[in-house]
Amino acid sequence: MIDHLSPILIGTLGAATPLVLAGLGELVAEKAGVMNLGVEGMMLIGAIAAFAAAVASDGSVTAGLLAGMLAGVLAASLFALLALSLAANQAACGLALTIFGVGLSAFIGQSYVSHSLAGLPALPLPGLSQIPWLGPILFRQDPVVYLAFLLYVAVAWVLARTRIGLILRAVGESPEAAHAIGYPVLGIRWAATLTGGAFAGLAGAYLSTVYTPLWVQNMTAGRGWISVALVVFATWKPTRLLLGACLFGGVTILQFHAQGLGLDLPVELLAALPYLATVIVLVLISRDRKLLRLNLPASLGKPFVPGR
């Protein structure tokens, strides 16, 4: 059994990385009171921008990742312009961004369907990767996996321990109070939204240039939405988000190892598992209304117009 388990665990971190990245970005935005349902769209735009940039630069993954982040920021600014500066319905704006992202990426991607990239080799961390069993699972990953973990540490630290984090949370809890004591509520929300866009763009870029280094239409396959659900599941706490993403990473790659585990289930039903699991964890966490209300940023999803 353990022989079959370790390939799953080795693949888990890679599969969890896009969820960690996109989830952290959404968590930052939601902490500031912005519910951006456009994560799926931003990831797709990031994915195709990264792929195009990597192809144009002779397969440079770094160029791809940077282009993906930039594209994610640009996509998020469309959302911010509408949902923040024009105070439009956030749910509808996020949905619009996703529809737009699906269309735009499919449109641009048409000319990239036959290309593929080399991806990134794993970077075994010296010493640590030699630890029996745990070494290959945790420390023989590609660089973006480590980067995602570092970003988790950074986001957790900034939110919990710094002045910036405090202001961000204040804006999310009570934009009126934050406005009254002189903080630029909309500016902070813009910054949080763009940060979320950069993270989502990076997540998409990782998918198209490293994880499966080729372009497939709609290749994010709902991971953006799962990330949004993970933020709820994590009750807006970075550490729970990280654990949740790893859990989902494991569920996602289960389908590729089912035979080894002796699971005689059709592959299509196994592929549906992550989505079913998302529904189940949402139900488990949401049924505890008190827990949810305690952690939910109080102004989440509500537009703020200064002076109204």
């Binding site: 469309l78 509408l82 024009l86 439009a88 319905n89 509808a92 619009a96 737009f100 449109f107």
Partner: peptide, 25 residues
């Protein structure tokens, strides 16, 4: 690419939400 339809759909919803913002403001 026929995917241009999706692009138009997204733009349409964006513009609509933007125009709607000026109903109350």
């Amino acid at each position: 690419p026929a995917a241009i339809t999706g692009l138009f759909q997204g733009m349409l919803l964006f513009f609509l939400l933007g125009a709607d913002a000026f109903i109350d403001n």
